[in-house]
């Protein structure tokens, strides 16, 4: 039972980052009906720029907490600009084109970002980790009744939950949030009602990218960083969004947590020789969800009009 609780906590902390990323997918899908393939790459850029910022801060002998703050804030700014630029240069000229055309453009953007980061003077193909002192500082654990929780997990929870709270506040309580809801409900009608759709879409991309950058830095603290890290991770987060019901914000949260927990349990409870197959669990879930209930847990059924 103790072991179960331990795995549950780890699973939830992994799921929290999936949820952050899934929120970006789901918001963009909500306003544009587009699967933003480049979102996984924004997450990767978040991790990479976090890596650069933290190294820079440590070179100036900043204390650990300050260095981490610089990394989180810096990469959030970088990713916000990146998200805005992606939308402005790649997707905006294609507004109104067939969805497939935009989807292929999104794939192109994702391929471009991967390979630009792959250049040696930006990051290079070698997998790297955050500096050892950062990892050491974060891996100290607190034991509560036999269950160990590291500082990293606490940071992950605190950040994810507070960001989600802020996002919920923005969406439910501000004018921009109202506009965002209007656009995702009916794009054309919102435009006729005087909502500046282009501005709303930019805001959506910026919000999504900030969430992705935080997820990126948090995962950078735990795993190795490579230019291709966004591919699998982004796909799994997308699965989380589909599982929760794409377009639904609470759905993305539930989906992310579910995927995180299932994956961690699969990794832990599968026999050792099958552990590697745990990566496939998310995709198997995806196939089943798409077959049984393509709209996901919280999604609503849309009627197709001819």
């Amino acid at each position: 039972m103790l072991q179960f609780t331990q795995e549950l906590i780890i699973g939830l902390s992994i799921g929290a980052t999936y949820a952050l990323l899934a929120l970006g997918y789901t918001m963009v899908y909500g306003v544009l009906r587009l699967i933003n393939f480049a979102h996984g790459e924004v997450y990767m850029v978040g991790a990479v720029s976090g890596f650069h910022f933290i190294n820079l801060a440590l070179r100036w002998h900043a204390p650990l907490a300050l260095a981490l703050t610089i990394a989180f804030v810096g990469s959030a700014i970088v990713c916000a600009i990146l998200g805005f630029c992606i939308e402005f240069f790649a997707y905006r000229p294609l507004r109104g084109s067939p969805r497939l055309v935009i989807l292929i453009t999104a794939i192109g953007v994702s391929l471009l970002l991967q390979n630009v980061v792959n250049l040696n003077f930006i990051y290079g193909p070698t997998p790297r980790t955050f500096p050892a002192e950062v990892q050491k500082g974060l891996n100290t654990s607190i034991g509560i009744g036999g269950v160990y929780i590291s500082r990293l997990i606490i940071i992950r929870f605190a950040l994810s939950l507070s960001l989600m709270a802020v996002l919920t506040w923005i969406i439910l309580r501000t004018r921009t949030g109202l506009a965002l809801r209007a656009v995702s409900h009916r794009f054309d009608t919102a435009m006729l009602m005087g909502v500046n759709t282009n501005r709303v879409i930019s805001v959506t991309f910026i919000l999504g990218s900030v969430l992705a950058s935080v997820a990126g830095v948090m995962d950078g603290l735990r795993y190795t960083i490579t230019p291709l890290m966004g591919v699998t991770y982004g796909l799994k987060a997308f699965v989380a969004a589909v599982l929760g019901g794409i377009g639904s914000i609470p759905g993305a949260l539930i989906g992310g947590l579910l995927i995180g927990i299932t994956e961690e349990f699969a990794r832990f409870y599968l026999p050792t020789q099958y552990t590697q197959y745990a990566d496939a669990v998310a995709f198997v879930i995806l196939i089943f969800i798409l077959l049984l209930k393509p709209t996901g847990i919280m999604g609503s059924t849309a009627v197709e009009k001819v």
Binding site: I35, R99, L100, L103, T232, L235, F238, V239, V242, Y274, Q276, Y277, D279, A280, F283, V284, L286, I287, L290, L291, P294
Partner: peptide
């Protein structure tokens, strides 16, 4: 047979998922 009940971008994602499953199975 299962995936083609889906359309457009859902189909793209499902085929992507299958491709990824094949990759993970071969890799492991």
């Amino acid at each position: 047979v299962p995936a083609l009940r889906l359309r457009g971008d859902y189909l793209a994602i499902a085929t992507l998922g299958f491709g990824e499953i094949i990759y993970i199975v071969i890799r492991s």
